[in-house]
């Protein structure tokens, strides 16, 4: 393994493999507590608490969705107002041109549509997807990360990263194996 670490310039980081979700969770906490920040954990299903353990904080998405919904609602009602009162006013049974109760269903649907589109595309874009290639895919056995194994990566660009020291530290966390991963 240490032979693989020789080419430092192309080193992506060290990746530890675990069998159990609870092990990777404990290891992630330990790694974060040791001061590493350029870390990431990979699991086949969402492990509760794992994102907290690696220090991941981002609450932007719910706000984006909220504003997406507002935009949809306003967009819908503006469209109905403009078309029915300004651009193509039509007298339907003597009702006012801006007969807002009849305009509720369409703006309601627009709210949901825009919020849902924001939720999906917001999630994809904030996650930096689609991204067909990533250095982590070079990890041996990483195809199991979507099946039944758990991985914890410390990137080489982390200021506290030291090939030997970090490897020793990771090995102390009960992994199945620790591998050096090329970029």
């Amino acid at each position: 393994m240490s032979s693989a670490i020789k080419k430092r310039t192309t080193l992506y980081g060290l990746v530890a493999e675990f069998d159990e979700a609870d092990d990777v969770l404990k290891a992630a906490e330990a790694v974060y507590d040791a001061g590493y920040r350029k870390i990431d954990a990979y699991s086949p299903f969402p492990v509760h608490g794992l994102s907290d353990a690696i220090g991941f904080k981002c609450n932007l998405l719910p706000w984006l969705i909220f504003f997406g919904g507002i935009a949809g609602c306003l967009g819908g009602i503006t469209l109905e107002w403009y078309t029915s009162s300004i651009d193509y006013p039509m007298n339907v049974g003597g009702r006012p041109f801006f007969s807002w109760p009849s305009f509720v269903p369409v703006s309601y649907e627009c709210t949901i549509l825009f919020a849902a589109l924001t939720a999906v595309f917001g999630m994809i874009i904030l996650n930096g997807l689609p991204r067909p290639y990533h250095s982590i895919f070079n990890t041996p056995n990483f195809d199991r990360a979507t099946q039944d194994k758990f991985f914890l990566a410390i990137e080489a660009i982390d200021p506290r990263f030291d090939a030997k020291e970090t490897e020793r530290f990771l090995k102390g966390l009960n992994p199945v194996v620790v591998s050096a991963v090329e970029r």
């Binding site: 992630a28 969402p46 353990a53 999630m123 997807l129």
Partner: peptide, 15 residues
């Protein structure tokens, strides 16, 4: 190119 990153899962579950 999903890779199951913990941060991704967090946003995924939120969404």
């Amino acid at each position: 190119g999903w890779r199951g990153s913990a941060g991704h899962w967090f946003r995924y579950e939120t969404a």
